[in-house]
Structure formats: C-alpha cells, structure tokens
Design a protein around this nucleic acid. Structure first.
Lengths: 208, 208
DNA sequence: TAGATTGTTAATCGATTAACAATC
DNA sequence: TAGATTGTTAATCGATTAACAATC
C-alpha cells in the first residue's frame, strides 16, 4: 500500500464517501452497493469501486459493501480512528466562531487551544476556550504533540504565523487567510477562501 | 465564446490568476509573463497560456501580458466588473462573522441582508447589519434581484432554506452547512466544509 | 441455481505538457 | 537584428468509464 501511487484525486473523494455512509447508517442501511453510493454523490459506480480498490477489497460480489466495516476501513485510511487535537490561531470573529463550532468535535477534531497576539483579547473567554498568547503556542504544540492547525489571522501576518506553527511541529494547516502560504515538504495546506469560490460561480451567472 | 466547451477546471483557476495579478500590481509590475505567473502558482506556463486562450488573445509575443488589461479581461470573464449583492441566511456565530467580514466587500461582494428564523435574534444588530426575519427573504431577493446567497443555517433546515432561496431567484449558493444540497439546472453551489478538508489532510499524516 | 455486484482490465476520454512557428 | 514569449498543435499523461469474469 504505497501511498505515492494513489492519486490525490481519489483520496479527495474518500471523505465524501464516508459522509454519505454515515447518513445511510442513520437511515438504517446495513449493506450498500457502489450504485447506491454513486447515486447520492453523482459519481459513477465504476469510479467508486476503482477508488476503493486502491486500498483493498471491501465488498462481496453479488452483495455490495457491509456498511459498518466499510466505514471502519475508510476511517482507518483517513486516520480518523482517533481524536485529533487542533490549535487555532487568530481569535477574530471567524476564529472564535470556528473555535466554538461543534461540528469539529462531533467529527473527531478537538480544538484545544485558541491564540491571538492582541493583549486586549488574551485572557478573554470565547465559549469554552480562553484566548491565549500566541507566543505560548510553540511550547503547547510541542508538549501536546499537536499536528493540526487552523489559521484565521490577518493576511499581513499569515505567512509568519504559519512559519512559527510549522517550526513547532504542525504538519497540516487549514488556511482561512486567503494568502497562498509557502510551505515545505511534509506540511499540508488546505485553503478555504470563500471569495475565490464566489468568483468561480459568478462566471456562470449570465450578464443581464 | 461558447461557455459549454470551456472546461470548468480551467474556469476554477481564473480566480487564482486574478489574485496573483492583483498582488503583482501592488508590487509594481506592468507586464507579466506566463512563466512569472506560473512560478507563483506552481502551474506550468503552458497551462496558463492554454487557459487564457479559451477566452481570447491577451498577450504580446516576446513581451508577455500587459498586467492591467489582463486583469480587466479576467474581471469581465468572471463577471466581477460590477458589485454583486449577496444575502446571507443563518445568523449564528459563523454567519455573523461572515456578514461582517470586510474581505467580501473589498472584492466586490456586498452582503446586504442577513436573516434568521430565531425571534430572539430578529431585530438585533450584528456589525452594520440588522438580523431580519427569514420570511422576509424571498420578497427582498425578488425586489433587489439578488442572485448570490450564503447559507449558514443548521443541517436540519439547510435543504429547505436552499429551496426557498432558489424559488426566490437565487442562482448561486455558497454552502457552509455540510449538507449535500440538491439543486436543479441553472443554480450553482460551492461547498465549504472544513471537516472534509481536515479529513483530506489527516490521510497524509502518518500513524505514529 | 439465477441474479446481482464486486474487482479489474482495457478502452475511452480529457487534461496537461512539450515543442515550435509566429511575431513583438 | 537577436532574444523573448505568445498562441497553438500534437504528443503525452492520467483519470474515468465500459465491460466482464469471478463469485457471493
């Protein structure tokens, strides 16, 4: 199972598969076919079988995939058969909203720290979290061995804060800043930039 | 310029090109080559020239692309040579944070209304906006001819609220709910689901 | 058994890149 | 002019899909 040869585009579909499987579990399914899964996701059954086949054989000919064992497999593949601790840097409105968003905890991501550099904010509570001094962050990350970070600072300090996070041991950054972060080898970045996504859609809105 | 034949994957890169061009304009560039642009975006120069060629000839052989005219062209192609009005439904923490995010306005997206269905919230101010009754939304959308909506409601009401938005005339939805919205023909959806993006990254984080 | 669906191969489709004539 | 870079074609690369033997 050499990861290098599994296309990232296949990886990128796995979380969606898992999400739909969770939904179908709630609906009471015990077995699911690639056809059923594909209908809900607008993905061809062949695509789904091909994606799974990169990781092993999870189904039974003539039957389909046992739902719970498939979910287990996907959770192992995505490494979410555990709780991930997460730090969040940037306690603005967006950062605080995300820090208190229960959707992360429900899916196994525990935001354990929220930081800012503004003396007016440090020490204040936001939900269950207390905003801490960002200078404390590297020590915490090292001590707690945290690998995941969420970045919601201003554009001006984005790269600099990211550099500090990476130096402390953060290996994956969810980047809300809109800045194209420069990172090196083992660090992963996913960008969330709503303006970019609006621009993508306005293309398709006719001039009238 | 028949849109149907231009691949969506090429469209999806245009906002990124524009973003980098704006940065280079601030840095004082007057002309930019596909090579320079590609270096900043980790995209091959051939790819960039190919993408542009779907829309016309914007460069000069031997010189490159005049920066400002290229930006103008991209803005026209993406239909952002104007201000777009936007409605936001769901005045939770995230919705309010987004409603007051200046990044939207700076890039030409004006969030003019924010709605909720909670009587405790209706009438309250959040930044410069007053939270209004979601039942008022269809009338406003029709009157103001608004085409863009941001959805930050709970998963439970997501599809239902989206249906109302579409019926009122909304043509593009930025969907923060994590629900896979069912939409019909001329309506576009872009999903923002941070948990999905975290799951994509945890795949690459080794077990230790 | 007959029907269904997997896992996989080969064919197809589409996107990216290399190369180069055109030309500024 | 010589050097540089576009726009475009053809080649390459990779992803998706169709098809089907295996088998539950």
């Amino acid at each position: 199972m050499d990861k290098k040869q599994i296309p990232d585009i296949a990886i990128s579909r796995l979380p969606g598969y898992l999400q739909v499987l969770e939904q179908m579990a709630r609906e009471g399914f015990g077995v699911v076919s690639s056809l059923q899964l594909g209908k809900r996701l607008n993905i061809s059954p062949a695509q789904i079988r091909k994606d799974f086949s990169h990781f092993g054989e999870f189904g039974q000919q003539g039957k389909g995939y046992p739902l719970f064992s498939l979910m287990d497999q996907l959770q192992q593949i995505l490494h979410i058969d555990r709780i991930w601790q997460v730090v969040l840097v940037g306690a603005g409105d967006l950062g605080c909203a995300l820090g208190n968003y229960q959707g992360f905890r429900m899916r196994g991501f525990d935001i354990v720290k929220i930081y800012d550099n503004d003396p007016m904010k440090i020490g204040k509570k936001t939900g269950a979290l207390t905003i801490e001094d960002v200078n404390q962050m590297p020590e915490d990350v090292k001590k707690l061995q945290i690998k995941l970070g969420i970045l919601t600072v201003t554009q001006l300090s984005a790269q600099q804060v990211a550099d500090v996070m990476m130096a402390a041991g953060i290996r994956a950054i969810l980047n809300y800043t809109g800045v194209n972060l420069q990172v090196t080898a083992p660090v992963h970045v996913q960008n969330i930039d709503p303006v970019m996504q609006l621009l993508h859609m306005t293309y398709y809105l006719a001039d009238d």
